[in-house]
């Protein structure tokens, strides 16, 4: 009798273990890394991370980050750019606000070395929205707005994109740069986001994107802090990193970033980015 009972207990425990095993596999929350070789023109290179929320409830309706620009600013290659931004993403649709540098620099390089310059020159705050139906070689459904001013080297600026009424509004330091309708066409709409990204980016449509530099060098890093997103009625401070991306030349330090109670005071939680060549 006792033997039968023991056998039954073993069977139940085995089944329970199996359930836990499969649940672990399917709900694993390990951070995935995404590092791409990135040196062909028309390729966008990234140094950042993503938190994926999914499409529950009202989904993502706001994203915010303080971005500190380093004391030396990146150089930019032919028809390229270097930028940093928080973004709300939904498949091929996205809306972002950040700073961007498009112009090459003809002056003296700073002690940051080749690829990093001082003082800042030609940076602009910008807003971009893409309604998700671009076609090859065109900007169809993609809109950009630029401020005539931009971040000074060594400054901290707050960037926010939020759903405001029937618009996606973008602002820097509380000043609105643009507000675009949630819907462009009735069948092509950007209603709400499913993920947020915080990233630096370099790109060029006509040359090697590596001819531009990510903002920051090993000794003067760009910093994203006060990172947060509003999802389905709740603010997520320092949303966890679902995956991070460090393409060619991208370096980042995530050791000060987290979503545990240790980092609930968001000013203690930050992530650093820089270009590994400098």
């Amino acid at each position: 009798m006792k033997k039968r009972l023991a056998e039954k207990i073993i069977v139940v425990l085995s089944l329970f273990s199996l359930i836990l095993f499969f649940e672990g596999i399917f709900t694993s929350k390990e951070v995935s890394a995404d590092s791409q070789a990135c040196s062909v023109n028309k390729t966008n290179c990234f140094n950042g991370f993503e938190h994926t929320f999914g499409a529950g409830g009202t989904a993502v309706t706001s994203v915010y980050a303080d971005i500190s620009t380093p004391s030396y600013m990146p150089t930019v290659g032919s028809q390229g750019s270097s930028s940093a931004w928080p973004m709300i993403v939904n498949d091929t649709k996205y809306v972002q606000v950040g700073w961007i540098k498009t112009n090459k620099f003809a002056g003296n390089y700073g002690s940051g070395g080749l690829g990093q310059v001082f003082p800042s020159d030609g940076e602009h705050f910008f807003y971009e929205i893409n309604y998700g139906y671009s076609s090859i070689g065109t900007s169809l459904g993609d809109y950009q707005v630029y401020s005539a001013k931009g971040p000074a080297a060594g400054s901290v600026n707050g960037y926010r994109v939020e759903k405001s009424g029937n618009y996606w509004a973008g602002e820097v330091n509380g000043n609105q740069i643009a507000a675009f309708p949630l819907s462009y066409d009735t069948d092509k709409f950007l209603y709400s986001g499913t993920a947020v990204q915080f990233s630096e980016e370099i790109n060029s449509a006509v040359s090697n994107p590596q001819s531009s530099a990510f903002a920051g060098g090993a000794n003067y890093r760009s910093k994203f802090s006060n990172v947060r997103a509003f999802f389905n009625g709740k603010t997520y401070y320092s949303p966890s990193i679902t995956r991070y991306f460090t393409d060619t030349s991208a370096s980042q330090n995530r050791s000060h970033y987290g979503d545990t109670s240790v980092y609930s005071n968001q000013s203690n939680s930050y992530i650093e980015f820089w270009d590994s060549r400098y």
Binding site: K42, F46, S81, D91, F126, S134, S139
Partner: peptide, 20 residues
């Protein structure tokens, strides 16, 4: 007459917008 890429997200599946 220029060709500048849009600032797409990482792992973007759509056509990268090009502004002229």
């Amino acid at each position: 007459g220029m060709s500048y890429e849009g600032n797409v997200p990482d792992s973007y599946k759509g056509e990268v917008p090009i502004h002229h």
